[in-house]
């Protein structure tokens, strides 16, 4: 089902949480809302889910305006960061909740509900745990129960708020892959909120990068990483170092080095440039480029990481395949790829 929001604005007291946000989510898509805390991503998700209401703008599901409709009439599955399971209910009762609160005329019989619960428990790989209480499950298991509960009512749209935020790294990775599978298997349209860019880039079909209540870019993970549309995205994704530079004739002048600009064309004038750790070459001191001192060299499997201190005191990480420097050496960092935006 297509989920579309247009010109959404939401204000909390003095804080503009959403600033005329427009976003189209395609049917069957797995979309990530990525951004730092306070960027408005959770507010956007909650408005789509009917848990918050916008001051202005529209929300439509499959072309139908649902902006005024409360959560319970939207057929949306919502998975909360802290699971929000009903602690006093057994797992099976948690999962069955959405079915048992239906009006009597639409409510399936007890046998049908029990069968559906068993089916969902199998789907979330927790067969036989229906009689447990949430307190008796691990974090990962609870999150899967929360998902099963949300899926019980056959939602067309699945919304997940930092679904893996409270889990440790190993569990998180397993659960990610598994969730991706469930999404495909059930033919859902899913939107999830995260502040973890690895998670967003790894999992989503498209990523919407948010900042200050606005969407900066909506694109495939590859495009968001390799062709950031704005300075914010270039800065936020992929641990880049920021430099002041000059833009002229589609080229970037940075510390005496002239390079083509790989970012979208920008007018001539002062700019900000972003360089990622693997986009530096190390040259001997005196070469045109950024003068730096090596502070530390560490080795991982195939690469070496050089921690260098710039003249202005900033620390830059460089990832390189070949290292011929030791700690304390004076070097020059020569950027090889650069993305620059108007300042």
């Amino acid at each position: 089902m297509t989920v579309a929001v247009a010109d959404l604005t939401k204000r909390f007291r003095d804080h503009l949480a959403l600033d005329s946000v427009t976003l189209d989510v395609r049917p069957g898509e797995f979309l990530a809302l990525l951004g730092p805390s306070g960027s408005g991503k959770t507010t956007l998700l909650r408005i789509i889910g009917g848990l918050d209401f916008p001051d202005a703008g529209t929300v439509s599901f499959a072309g139908e305006d649902v902006a005024g409709r409360p959560a319970r009439d939207r057929r949306v599955g919502f998975v909360f960061q802290n699971y929000a399971l009903f602690r006093h209910m057994r797992v099976a009762d948690n999962i069955a909740f959405g079915l048992t609160v239906k009006p009597r005329s639409q409510r399936p019989g007890a046998m049908a509900i029990a069968a559906r619960v068993d089916e969902l428990l199998a789907l979330v790989q927790l067969p036989g745990l229906g009689r447990r209480y949430p307190a008796q499950l691990s974090g990962g298991q609870r999150q899967r129960v929360a998902l099963a509960r949300a899926l019980a009512v056959d939602p067309a749209v699945l919304l997940l708020d930092e679904p893996f935020g409270a889990l440790d790294a190993k569990v998180r990775n397993d659960l990610r892959r598994w969730l991706r599978g469930v999404h495909a298997q059930m033919g859902l349209t899913s939107i999830f909120v995260t502040h973890d860019q690895d998670e967003a880039l790894d999992l989503a079909d498209r990523v919407a990068v948010m900042n200050n209540g606005r969407i900066e870019q909506v694109d495939t993970p590859d495009a968001v990483y390799n062709r950031p549309a704005t300075a914010f995205v270039a800065d936020f994704i992929g641990n880049a170092t920021r430099f002041d530079c000059r833009l002229s004739d589609g080229a970037v002048e940075l510390a005496g080095v002239r390079l083509p600009n790989t970012a979208p064309p920008a007018p001539d004038g002062p700019g900000v440039a972003f360089v990622r750790p693997h986009e530096f070459a190390i040259a001997s001191a005196g070469t045109p480029g950024l003068a730096a001192t090596v502070r530390r060299v560490t080795h991982t499997a195939a690469m070496a990481n050089v921690e260098a201190v710039l003249a202005d005191g900033r620390v830059v990480d460089i990832a390189t395949a070949t290292v011929a420097v030791d700690a304390g050496a004076a070097i020059t960092l020569v950027p090889t790829v650069v993305r620059a935006y108007p300042a």
Binding site: A71, R72, F86, R87, M89, V101, K102, R149, A150, V153
Partner: peptide, 24 residues
């Protein structure tokens, strides 16, 4: 969030109160 969870699962305010809040 448990109230919101109940609402997103289709529960009305009465059902949320009697089935989620009161037992807790």
């Amino acid at each position: 969030d448990v109230e919101e969870a109940a609402a997103s699962l289709g529960a009305g305010r009465r059902q949320t109160f009697t089935r989620v809040i009161l037992p807790a």
